[in-house]
């Protein structure tokens, strides 16, 4: 199945595909962001391929690499029982890509989550707001330059000092 998909997609979108990779049997394409919508629509509507289900949508932060961000889409074809992965590289400054909510309404929450966690803008999304983090949260926690936070534990030996440092002590 992989070879069929590769040949079909290469024939139609030779310009838009920057990399085709098969790893552990999984097929993935690296796509130019501007061609994403067209490719997704093609994969969905093509009678032979018919990737009718958007399984997964998420982001990855490759800090120090260019492009820094990557949005990963997994599309599933119920007909062929086959999965294809699309990857879109986005720059560090104002990462933005077109929303898939118009084609797959299921992208709604998943894009909101990716926005929340990475700050990636999905253009045209009906309500691109934070979903898991509090509304007034500053920053995007899954970015690699955000450190893993922790709560300082107070013991009898140092509870005075620890409580003084904690924000609730000031209220």
């Amino acid at each position: 199945m992989n070879t069929t998909v590769i040949s079909r997609v290469q024939a139609e979108f030779a310009e838009a595909i920057t990399e085709t990779r098969e790893f552990r049997g999984d097929l993935s394409f690296r796509v130019r962001p501007e061609a994403l919508l067209e490719l997704v629509e093609f994969l969905r509507t093509d009678a032979e391929l018919s990737y009718n289900f958007l399984e997964n949508l998420t982001g990855v932060d490759y800090l120090g690499r260019d492009p820094r961000f990557e949005v990963v889409y997994h599309m599933l074809s119920h007909k062929n029982r086959h999965r294809v992965c699309l990857k879109v590289g986005l720059p560090e400054h104002r990462p933005h890509v077109a929303t898939l909510t118009g084609i797959f309404p299921t992208a709604n929450y998943q894009e909101r989550e990716t926005f929340d966690m990475y700050g990636i803008i999905f253009e045209g999304h009906p309500s691109l707001q934070r979903i898991l983090m509090p509304e007034d949260w500053i920053g995007h926690p899954l970015r690699k330059d955000v450190p893993l936070g922790y709560e300082e534990v107070a013991f009898t030996i140092n509870e005075q000092q620890v409580y003084e440092r904690k924000t609730f002590a000031e209220e």
Binding site: F23, R24, D26, E55, N56, V60, V72, H74, R83
Partner: peptide
């Protein structure tokens, strides 16, 4: 590399994407 695996959990498709 990266891998995506999906299993049928009681609630539906549980997928795990690891880079």
């Amino acid at each position: 590399g990266d891998a995506y695996v999906a299993v049928e959990s009681p609630r539906g498709e549980f997928g795990c994407y690891i880079v």
